[in-house]
């Protein structure tokens, strides 16, 4: 048992170190989210009421895109240089490899999105309550998006298809997280069922943490054959 924990920690440390050595890459989703959000006032007009009404939804959709773009090459480098094969040979089952990899990936790319979201909410003229509700919802939601995105990335690893195909596979499956994420935020601004939305987001998080690693591992074994 301690061997497994040690192996998981070693893998987490390796992934974390690799990510921190290339900080630019890890920050790309945040920059994507920032630039994307900045485009919306230009597109729909700078009127405060419009931005206030669509703001939380826009930030959620862009966060979804940012995560999907960020997870696209989650497995590619490891498959190309053969370390995925070494990971499969190691004592850590591929399911746990997938879970550790996704958690580290969330720490590096998902957490910055959560941290920066209050700033974006300010830019989008959101009421003060949203400054707390939005990061809370993203905190529960972004790991779900990453787990599902990782399935898509694992299914397509090694093929020469574009990112657009990953998006086609992954986006429909991410819809529940988006709906309840936006629902949780909008509940604070006068809707209904805020607590319910947070609870369901939490359920989605636990469910995806429990189930997605099996799908990811099955897809990776396929790629390694």
């Amino acid at each position: 048992m301690s061997g497994l924990v040690g192996a998981a920690l070693a893998l987490a440390r390796r992934d974390l170190m690799l990510a921190l050595r290339r900080p630019g890459e890890a920050l790309l989703p945040v920059l994507f989210l920032l630039t994307g959000t900045a485009l919306f006032p230009l597109g729909v007009g700078p009127g405060a009421e419009t931005l206030a009404r669509i703001g939380s939804g826009v930030i959620w959709v862009l966060a979804l895109f940012a995560v999907t773009v960020g997870t696209d090459r989650l497995w590619a480098a490891d498959l190309e240089d053969g370390s995925l094969e070494q990971l499969e040979l190691g004592i850590l089952p591929l399911e746990l490899v997938a879970l550790v990899r996704c958690l580290v990936h969330w720490l590096v790319t998902g957490l910055p999105l959560v941290v920066i979201s209050p700033l974006l909410a300010l830019l989008m003229q959101q009421p003060p309550a949203v400054l707390l509700a939005l990061p809370a919802a993203l905190l529960l939601g972004t790991p779900v998006l990453i787990m599902i995105g990782a399935i898509g990335a694992a299914l397509l690893v090694g093929s020469r298809r574009s990112q657009a195909l990953t998006a086609l596979l992954v986006l429909p499956l991410q819809i529940p997280a988006l709906i309840f994420g936006v629902g949780a935020v909008e509940a604070t601004t006068g809707g209904i069922g805020g607590t319910v939305a947070y609870l369901i987001l939490g359920a989605l998080l636990l469910g995806s943490l429990a189930l997605a690693p099996f799908a990811i591992a099955a897809a990776l074994r396929l790629a390694l054959e």
Binding site: I151, L155, L156, L169, P172, L173, I175, P176, I179, F180, G183, E186, G191, I192, G193, I200, L204, L211, A215, A218, A219, L222
Partner: peptide, 26 residues
């Protein structure tokens, strides 16, 4: 690979259906 995706979709369809209903009533 497509079989895995179809299975993931099968698990997800009730959740999607439920969430879309919830979204709509909201």
């Amino acid at each position: 690979a497509a079989s895995i995706l179809a299975l993931v979709g099968l698990v997800n369809i009730p959740i999607v259906k439920f969430s879309v209903d919830w979204w709509n009533t909201l």
